[in-house]
């Protein structure tokens, strides 16, 4: 059909300036693209492109510097928060963030993650949890769900053999250095709006030197999960959210839920 041409049009949404024109290398439907874009939108809106340094370690998003038009460092697997610490300690007036996947942040880099947060480094840690290793071809992640079939758990993740999914976000929220901890998603327009608000708060807190802000983004991996993008969104809601519920986990001025004391 012919769609009539409208007059008097105003742009109400366009790609952020701080995102380069390089098309993403990510698979169709991958949440990385949305997360990148929203992060750059926040940097645009806060006008901090010149003051922001990002760190992206090994994983699908290691090439984030192709897309984010800011000064960036690529870090070794698991060491993004250590590199970000190094940057922030010599440039304390700048905004520094790391952008890490689940394997990076919650497996090989667990020590760096915990100690960076425990020191209360004034950085933002963005944690993309898609419960799988995307770049290496769909192996089990520390956050893979029980029973989840991956290329290294061909019979499903067996917690008796390999342990339960690691809820690292709840874990680090216990640390005094963590100032703002939240879990968001990018699968619906509303989820994206909430994520953007949280990212904005995180940068504002960083300006105030409040401690580590940590935002988990429950995302998808259609290729690794062997689902279509639309099926993967459904899978997130049905399988990921029961294990990784969305919302604030630690917010300034409010007490977090105390750990269970049943066994004490």
């Amino acid at each position: 059909m012919e769609i009539p041409v409208l007059e008097n049009l105003e742009v109400v949404y366009k790609k952020p300036e701080t995102l380069t024109d390089t098309p993403f290398h990510y698979c169709p439907g991958c949440g990385h693209g949305v997360a990148h874009r929203v992060l750059m939108e926040v940097i645009d809106e806060l006008g901090i492109q010149e003051e922001t340094i990002g760190v992206a370690p090994v994983g699908c998003s290691v090439f984030a510097y192709h897309y984010m038009n800011i000064d960036m460092q690529q870090a070794a697997h698991g060491r993004a928060s250590a590199a970000a610490t190094g940057i922030k300690r010599v440039l304390p007036e700048k905004y520094v963030f790391s952008y890490q996947g689940d394997g990076d942040l919650a497996a090989i880099g667990t020590a760096e993650t915990i100690h960076t947060v425990n020191r209360g480094e004034n950085i933002l840690m963005v944690f993309i949890n898609n419960a799988i290793y995307g770049m290496t071809g769909g192996q089990m992640a520390p956050t893979s769900l029980c029973g989840q079939v991956t290329s290294t758990t061909p019979y499903g993740r067996d917690p008796a053999k390999i342990g339960f999914p690691l809820k690292i976000t709840e874990l680090i929220a216990q640390l005094p250095g963590a100032y703002f901890v939240a879990r968001h998603a990018v699968h619906t327009p509303n989820a994206v709006r909430k994520l953007k608000k949280a990212l904005r708060s995180a940068f504002e807190y960083q300006k105030l030197n409040k401690g580590t802000c940590f935002i988990e983004i429950v995302s998808n991996c259609p290729s690794g999960w062997k689902l279509s993008p639309l099926e993967s969104q459904k899978w997130i809601e049905e399988n990921m959210f029961p294990m990784y519920p969305l919302g604030d986990i630690k917010v300034p001025g409010k007490n977090i839920t105390a750990p269970s004391t049943e066994n004490n």
Binding site: Y13, K15, P16, F24, P28, G29, G33, V34, R37, P189
Partner: peptide
């Protein structure tokens, strides 16, 4: 908002 490729204006 949900476009993973920032392809939509």
């Amino acid at each position: 908002l949900v476009c993973p490729d920032a392809a939509i204006t």
